[in-house]
Amino acid sequence: MISPELLLQNSVDGIFLGLFYSLVAMGLALIFGVMDIINFAHGDLLMIAAYFVWLTSVDLSVDPTVTALLLIPLFFIIGIGIFFGMIQPVLGKEPLIQIAVTVGLGLILQNIALAMFKAQPKAVPYSIFNFSYSLGPLTIYASKLFIAVISIVTMYALNVFLNKTYIGLAMRSTTDNREVAQLMGINTRMLYAVTFGLGVALIALSSSLWMTFGQVQPYLGTSFSLISWVIVAMGGLGGITGVVYSGLIVGVAESLGSLFLTPSARMAVVYIIFFLVLWFRPRGLFGRR
């Protein structure tokens, strides 16, 4: 029998995890929504960024939270580079070609990481959030609380950006209707590049948060890619709220799945939910796709 305390603990952990997942998936949703590019290397970019965090932490003793400030602009530029080098040539091509190229990019990143860092998982030696509170029967890890808070703040900021700035509004109107946006004189090429850069910058932020408590190994990206896509599929293109709700569902399902079944079967629960959503709500749970 599972105790109510354990159930509560796992639900809270699941909510924290879910908020983090929504942040990870947000960049993907943005990129897919604005330019219809199917990016399967999303998680692998996170993995690479996480190694940056690990390196700066080990070699330079910089805290992951500080590294984020450096990584966000750096990955914004890397993202724009990837866009012009690999994404632009396959814009508007068949989905299969886009998947092929981004899977290829993912494999390259994975195996460069494997060659450089080997397969053993790495964790940062120290993080300022390495402590926990006890709240009655509940243990709250500061790092998890921190990433949940940062995820919420970031998504709120993104919401303001999409609704209040010219570029944000251009992104939104392109998501809604590409032709009309072009007619309105939006320079789609630059918009795409900026969107891709922003999506990758969000990944860099996510990676720093992840490293405050998680580990990185070369195959970390695969599961993040799949989870991000599951969240986008479930959220539809229903905007930020759709992504957040879907992220929460995935996070809680994973957390409770590992409690009720076994930790090794936790992803099965998430993906079975994914199957059911695709079958019965093909437009996603929250809005259109």
Partner: peptide
Amino acid sequence: VPGLDLLLYGIVLV
């Protein structure tokens, strides 16, 4: 250099 085979697949794929 583990993973050189998969690196090759990746490059060819791109």
